[in-house]
Structures are given as structure tokens and as C-alpha cells.
Amino acid sequence: MNLTLKIWRQKNAQDQGSFATYAVRDISPDMSFLEMMDVLNEQLIAQGVEPVVFDHDCREGICGMCSMFINGEAHGPDRGVTTCQLHMRKFKDGDTITVEPWRAKAFPVVRDLMVDRSAFDRVIQAGGYISVNTMGNLPDANATPIEKHDADAAFDAATCIGCR
């Protein structure tokens, strides 16, 4: 498929920034959105244009690093997935796709689509921990039973924190 991309380019936090329009061709529907961005970047490098900077790491939907605001939606049109698990089959040939960084005072843009999310670390520092030191003689892990329902709910809470 062939696509038109409107991507936010911003050199650094001080820069004003603006949208740039690029065309990409022969995108496979099996590619992830980030792999499509890789194709764009290889193309830009060949043209001598600096590639688009974006955050990404695990690319299997768990680390929470990939961000991006795609067509006016966080992580794009698919539901319950991160951008790295969004696949191009969710788009149509000839689509124009707008890609922006998160827009929030708490997350200043670092460059292009990359923002600084260290505010989340500061939230945890403000008290998001249990005050237990490392000890070799803590009570046995089964000393306090915890309801299955509560334990399972806690997985989801942690998943939410992890994705920020």
C-alpha cells in the first residue's frame, strides 16, 4: 500500500516545530506501524534528510515506550494495543496518516515524536512504593493470604503503570 504521512518535526524542546509531509510506497499490511516508520526513515536517510525520532524499545507491546498520537488518537485506531502492535492492515491504501507527539505541559517534546515522560517517575518517587528494604529474613511469602480477585486486579494496575 502507498501512504501519505503528515509527521510532526521538531528539532528540540526550544524549536517551534511543524508538520512535514512524506510519501511511503509498497508498505506491507503485515508491517507494524513502527516498521513502517523504519521504512520511512531509511528512505529519508537515503535522501539525506534526518530521520524521524520516536521512542520505541521492546516492540512486543509491554515496555510502554512507543507513544505517538496517530490520526487524532493515542496509539492509533486499533483498541487495546500499543503503537508497536498496531499493524498497517488497519489502514487503507492511499490513506493520509497524521502522527504527532503527546501534547502536554508535563511531557515536553524532546525531538520530533519523542517526549520526556520523567514526570511519571516523579509520581512514583512521591510515594508509589512500599517501604521495605532488602532483607533475607522477611516473613514467608505465604504468611499473608491475598484474595485471588485482588491479586489478579493488581496485575492490571501494574500493566497500566508500566505502559505510561
Partner: peptide, 25 residues
């Protein structure tokens, strides 16, 4: 030898592990 302490440490820190209906790990 230290493997068992890891589980105790993590549970004390609030790490959720799968539990059975009796509330045990």
C-alpha cells in the same frame, strides 16, 4: 539457596503473583 528469599522479598514489596482461591501462591 537464595531463590526462596526472592519470593518473600517481592511479596513484601507488593509484587502481585498468581494466587489460588485460598489466597496462597
Amino acid at each position: 539457596e537464595v531463590s526462596a528469599s526472592i519470593i518473600d522479598q517481592c511479596v513484601a514489596q507488593g509484587v502481585p503473583f498468581a494466587r489460588d482461591y485460598g489466597g496462597l501462591l
